[in-house]
Amino acid sequence: MRIDTISRPQDTIRQFILDSVNLPDLDDDFDIFETGIVNSLFAIELMTFLEKAFNIKVTMDDLDMANFKTVNTTAQFVLNKQGASGV
């Protein structure tokens, strides 16, 4: 998959979630786990996607579900990882 590097990570992440759960749209602050539209297995699918799409590595220290609960928190997580690795 090619990622447009100019687009905000939110757009990429939101699109991935929408493709996975078959919803028409998704608010970037909508808690996808708490509201029950996805399950814990989806967290792994999401991490797999993030690693591939943003060229980051999710490590043991990152396994806090708070990182992945909304489009916005996930985007912030990605930006932090990219910043930390100097990308």
């Binding site: 996975s20 759960v21 078959n22 029950g36 539209i37 996805v38 399950n39 297995l41 989806f42 699918e45």
Partner: peptide
């Protein structure tokens, strides 16, 4: 079942 791995 919503997708291959999402069953709610």
């Amino acid at each position: 079942q919503f997708s291959q791995n999402i069953t709610l």
